[in-house]
Nucleic acid binder design. Structure first.
Length: 110
DNA sequence: TGGTTGACGTGGT
DNA sequence: GACCACGCCAACC
């Protein structure tokens, strides 16, 4: 539910970064917040994802710092987020990614 | 205008 | 590695 599409908000910033995440890679809310210059606003990044439903944002590629799928409940299906990531070749221990460190991607890495 | 909310992070145990 | 308590701050109501 975009309120003011013409106004560039903190959310819009987050979307741009998420769209830059390469296929098969993931990042964290904190990393995005850090890239935006608001390290302490990591929670806002997650909230931004909540409004990313309308857009085509790969929000499933954004997890918390330990690779936990904390936002799976906000997808259509609780297992949708996990399935999308598995489709990209990731493996899980429950809701936690196993090779998280290997596939982690920072916005600074181009 | 002001208090509440959170898909988080860090530091301590 | 885990668990807990506290701090952050833009957006929402």
């Amino acid at each position: 539910m975009p309120k003011k599409p013409e106004q560039i908000s903190f959310f819009e910033r987050c979307y741009e970064v998420v769209l830059r995440i390469p296929y098969g890679r993931v990042t964290t809310y904190g990393a995005i917040a850090k890239y935006l210059g608001a390290v302490r606003s990591a929670r806002m990044v997650g909230w931004a994802m909540n409004s990313s439903h309308d857009r085509d944002i790969p929000a499933h590629r954004v997890v918390n710092r330990v690779g936990l799928l904390t936002g799976k409940h906000h997808f259509d299906g609780i297992h949708l987020m996990k399935q999308l990531l598995e489709n990209e070749g990731h493996r899980f221990d429950g809701d936690r990614m196993l090779n998280f460190k290997n596939v982690f991607w920072e916005p600074f890495d181009v």
